[in-house]
Structure formats: structure tokens, C-alpha cells
Computed example of a mutant assay.
Amino acid sequence: MSRKTAYRATWDPGKPLKLGQVGKLDSFGVFNVYSSLEKEGIPVETEEGSTGELDYTSSDSVTISTKLSGSVPAAGSVLTDADAGFSFDFKSDQSIVFQAGDVKTGHITNLGAIEKQILEKYKAGNWNKDWLIISELITAGSATIIISNSSNVKLELKAKAGVATGSLKLTDSSLGLTVAHEQGSTLKYISQKDLTPLYRLVGIVAPWLSATHIGPRSVVEKGEVIKLSVQPFNEAELSSD
């Protein structure tokens, strides 16, 4: 997901994160909070926008079927005629279903001013070069996240009795979705509320041939270097302010 969206996934997605938090990534890629820009005496200005819904599903390796109450279930399904729910077929052990509703995207708007103060602290020995800052954050009012841990996984979710017969959404927490059947192994967050599932990071970049600046930090996931797509701000550009 990071390779295609430049966002990192929060683990777990129920862990509350905030813009301007400062921390490090551990060996498992989990962001651990050490401090915040405010605690370090650096003011933060933010802006938030709404994007409605977000759907990132491995369409080439996941099949999702919706069953309405009163319809005939598919062959082999444990759902009855009266049940409403969803059926999933995961072909790969790296398949993902990520659907989020009431999505809001926040970002820091004064990275230039923040960079100046961090570089001053860094030169004075008061800032850890390995510290990373949450510069963008996606929050979701409700989300369903399913990750297959094995290939050829089959999963069925059943809605509570009496739900409306109209269109069903995986992000609708009022459906009361529960696991009716599972063949294989998955990690699941079903219609969970108030999540912070995705974020982006910036930190100190100190290349050999150009000025030290605040920008995207390369991180390692499963042996692959992934560069986070955030516009850098360099010291030379700010020197005229």
C-alpha cells in the first residue's frame, strides 16, 4: 500500500495519532511516539479537508460479493435466504480490503517555519536526527480493513437481523457485521469507528552534496526502500526569508 499511495499504514489503526507528533519507526515499521512539535516548543499550523470515502482493495486478488436479505445465497455459502452480508475470496496472502467512510485528510501548513526551528535545534545538538514527524494524517469515521495471511482465503460476514434491504456498505457500523464463516487466516477490523489508518512522515535529510533539510525520509519495509512522497523544503530556499 505504501508503494502505491505513499501513505504508511498505522498499526494498529485504532492507535490514536496526531499531526505534529514526533517519533521513530521500529524494526517492524510501527511508529512509536517520543514527543511532539508542541512539546519541543515548535508551533504547528494545520488544515483539514474532507474526502468522503476511500477504497483501496487488491482488485486483482480479492473478490467481494454482497448478499441482500431475501436473495438466494451463493453455492456453498453459510448465509441463509434471510441473511444479508458479504462474501470475500482472497487469492493471495498479501490481499487487502481497505474501505473507509467519513474520511478527513489533515496536513501541516507551516513546514517552512518548522524546518528553520528544527535545523537550529539540530545544529545545537537538541534534536535527534532520526526523529520523524507526522506531516499528513487520514482519519476515518468508520472503516473496514481485512488483510489475508494466507492464500485462497474465504470469509463471510453476516449483518444483524432486520437491516434495510437497500445497498450495503462495509463501512456502515449500524449493520453489526460479524464473522459467519472463515476458511484460512485474516486480520480484521470490521466497521470500526474513529480510526487513524494512514499517515505520512517527514524528517531531517542530510545528503552529502546538498544542504540539510526537512523532507521525505526513506524507510525500509520488508527489505525494500520506499520513499515517502512529501515535497521537501530545503535550507537554501528559506535563507532569503
Rank of each mutant, 00 (worst) to 15 (best):
K188T: 10
D194N: 15
I214G: 06
G176P: 09
L187I: 12
L195E: 03
V219A: 05
H213Y: 09
K193A: 13
L209K: 08
L187H: 11
K193H: 06
V179H: 06
V179A: 10
Y199V: 09
L187D: 13
R200I: 01
V205D: 11
T212A: 07
R217V: 15
G203C: 04
G166I: 00
K158H: 00
G184W: 03
E156M: 10
W208E: 14
S185V: 05
P207Q: 07
P207F: 01
S210A: 14
E156Y: 06
H213T: 06
T178P: 05
G215Y: 07
V220Y: 05
A159M: 07
P197V: 04
I214C: 04
T178A: 12
G184A: 05
A159P: 06
G166S: 14
P207T: 02
R217N: 10
H181T: 03
G203V: 07
R200H: 03
L195S: 05
L175P: 03
K188G: 00
Y199M: 12
V202I: 15
V179Q: 14
V220M: 13
G176L: 10
K188E: 11
A164I: 01
A211T: 14
L195A: 03
A161K: 15
L157D: 06
L175D: 07
E156A: 10
P207H: 02
P207L: 00
R217M: 08
D194G: 01
G176N: 11
K188Q: 15
R217L: 06
S173G: 00
I214A: 05
G166P: 13
L195T: 11
